[in-house]
Every structure is written in structure tokens, then in C-alpha cells.
């Protein structure tokens, strides 16, 4: 079990990358990954919450009584989510409007709660920090990639830059909810193929 800090960090980037390998946090992953910008914005917000909640849960793991641990996790997570919500409203209002209801929904994101329960509650501060950072970055990358694929296939452009040439007919199915499942499945398939060699 004794993994190095670097291993705790890097596992989140490939071996346990959230929406693909852990198949957790699907709701925001499918909901906001319509464009790359939204995906990355959501990923960063989640990463912040994940790191902060992992730190606090790990620090207080000896004080928090086992029987009410989930309640304590939720209080900690909800505090940071509300914090993010307020900060986003104050400084990145446009992104806040686009992400809308998915920001408060980070509270019930299984990635965040899952890491608190499965990792931070049993590990020391530094590994928990590395874990939160790794999983968070992995989640951000995954949402960004998913958003990129969907945006390019669904609208033919990314950040307003046309990538597919003018003869490309936008495959709008990809930016709708069912398209998200298909994109996720295909990307997971691709990851498995690469992983097997």
C-alpha cells in the first residue's frame, strides 16, 4: 500500500482518472462538457473543492467520529462549494452563468465525497493533498477532452476557431445529452485500447 507521493498524484491522471476509470462524477461530466471551456471551468472548480476538502478531512480524521463522518464531509464540502460559487459570481460571472446549477451540485459529486471517504479519511495530510490534486487534475483533463471532442464534432469549431473545414456539417447530436454518453463510451474504449498495447 505504501505508495510514494508522486504515485498518489499520478494515479489520478490515468489509472484512476475519474469519469473514465472510476466512473464517478458522471452527472457534471455529461452535463457541462458541451464545450471545452465549460468542461475545464467545471474541472477547476471541482479540483479546488476536492483539494480543500481532502486537506480538511485528512487533518480532522482523528477528531471526526466515525458514525457522523459523512455528515461532517458534506458540511466541509458544502462550505467550499458555496465559497467557489460566491467567488465565481464575483469574478468570473459569465462562466458562472454557463455552469449554472452544476456548481452547487459539486456538493453531491461522488468524486469529491468518494475521495474524502475512501482516501482522505484514512491517510495523512500530504498523500491526501497529492490525491486531491491528481484526481482533480485528471477530472479537469477528462472534462476538457470530452468537451473538446463534443464541441469539435458537434459544432465543427472550438473557441470559435473552425477546425473541420467549411464542408463539415455539424453533428449536433454530440452536444446534446445522449451524445455525451456516446463520446464518453468511445473515449473509454480508446483508453482501454491504448492501455492494453
Amino acid at each position: 500500500m505504501a505508495k510514494t507521493l508522486a504515485q498518489e498524484f499520478t494515479k489520478g491522471l490515468w489509472d484512476e482518472i475519474p469519469p473514465f476509470r472510476l466512473v464517478l462524477g458522471l452527472c457534471p461530466a455529461l452535463g457541462v462538457s458541451t464545450t471545452m471551456e465549460n468542461g475545464i471551468g467545471m474541472g477547476i472548480a471541482t479540483t479546488f473543492v476536492l483539494i480543500c476538502s481532502n486537506i480538511l478531512v485528512s487533518l480532522f480524521r482523528n477528531i471526526i467520529p466515525t458514525k457522523v463522518r459523512i455528515v461532517c464531509f458534506i458540511i466541509i464540502i458544502a462550505t467550499f462549494v458555496t465559497l467557489v460559487e460566491l467567488l465565481m459570481q464575483a469574478y468570473t460571472y459569465e462562466l458562472f452563468l454557463k455552469l449554472g446549477v452544476f456548481i452547487p451540485l459539486i456538493v453531491v459529486n461522488c468524486v469529491v465525497l468518494g475521495r474524502a471517504e475512501a482516501f482522505a479519511y484514512k491517510n495523512k495530510l500530504l498523500p491526501s493533498l497529492a490525491d486531491g490534486l491528481g484526481i482533480g487534475l485528471g477530472f479537469t483533463m477528462a472534462l476538457g477532452a470530452l468537451g473538446f471532442v463534443r464541441e469539435v464534432l458537434g459544432t465543427g469549431a472550438c473557441y470559435g476557431v473552425n477546425l473541420m473545414g467549411s464542408s463539415y456539417k455539424p453533428f449536433t447530436f454530440m452536444v446534446e445529452a445522449p451524445g455525451a454518453f456516446v463520446a464518453l463510451g468511445l473515449m473509454l474504449c480508446l483508453m482501454n485500447m491504448v492501455g492494453k498495447k
Binding site: 477528531i63 458514525k67 466541509i76 459570481q89
Partner: peptide, 26 residues
């Protein structure tokens, strides 16, 4: 359990009230 939950919640409430106050204008 009661003591810890109370402390945790009041800290959470305090921090959020402060941040809300600071960001309200923006």
C-alpha cells in the same frame, strides 16, 4: 458527535458569512 458537528457547522457558517460580505459588492 454533537459538539463536533456544532463546531464544524458554526465555523462553516462564519466563514461563508464573511466571504459573502466581502464579495457582495462585486
Amino acid at each position: 458527535m454533537v459538539v463536533i458537528l456544532t463546531i464544524l457547522s458554526s465555523f462553516s457558517g462564519g466563514i461563508l458569512a464573511y466571504v459573502k460580505d466581502v464579495t457582495e459588492k462585486d
